[in-house]
Amino acid sequence: MGINKNKTTKNSIDTRYKWGFYIAIFVILIFVPIVYQDNSRIMHILVMCVIWGLVSEAWNLILGFANVFSFAQLSFFAIGAYTSAMLTFYGGISPWYGLIAAGLSAALVGALIGLPCLKLKGIYVAIVTFSIHLVLPTIIVWGGQARFKYSTGGTFGLAGLRPFSIGSFSFGRNRLYWYFAGLSILFLTLFIIYKVINSYIGMAFIALRDSQEFAKSLGVNDYKYKIIVFSLSAFFTGIAGAFYVHYSSIVDPSILELDIFLLILVMVVLGGLGKFPGGVLGAFVITYTNEFLRFTGQYRYVILGLIVVITLTYLPGGIIGALEKLYFKVKNKSET
């Protein structure tokens, strides 16, 4: 485990540069909202950046690192959203507990989905998870019948969800508080994901990716690790879903639309599939770009689809991959 940790080999990035990059992002994320705190539109975009960053980094963990074709990420998002919404709406509990309950229920559903299908080849996982995504709206609309005591609200959803509050102080509509609350969750998540990637679990996935047969013959239990990472990813996504519904104060089945699915896919792909802060970086770039592209009207999703195809074909590492390439180019030049 600890081999070569502090030495830089030819194919590893100097940790000083890596941490310099992380700290630069950290500082930007802290100071940008303070500059823009009076512009409510930009603040809204920033809050959405944080939420989508959480979702796409969790997706990147399962899709990029574990190489599991999970297309159920938005389902976990919706499950977390509805869990927290219904618990706070009917049960009257604090949204903070709703956040944790949302994460746990999403992780539970993730484990239940993962147990049968993670044993199989990747293509099956892609099919099962994607069909679950498309079945969920039917179930949510069905759960909205008036005869149910705890109805999901059907196509109209549940409105008037409570915002977060600390003691008697409510976040209300002040987006600066929402941003920093979301950012703290995001940093905590990123820290855990970083730890997971650099633990023996991450090592196992690298081994499985490089040579599956050899890794398995050494006794790497990919099934166990995949379940762990799958549930972990679902947990973070569920939390993001709960955060989103308390921020927008309404939950309805439109969060499962294919457009949003595409949006998050673009974020993961553009940021860098399987590169560490790729999801977050992609989320910030794409959420801004998406707002910027509003004037193109219906062409917006055509452009986003093009970004997915072109990035994957010509730049499979995304932005982070491009930065790494640039770094190695400069490094090799200075050495020779």
Partner: peptide, 9 residues
């Protein structure tokens, strides 16, 4: 993922 992006495109 490319075919999925292509489908949405």
């Amino acid at each position: 993922i490319v075919t999925l992006g292509a489908a949405l495109l």
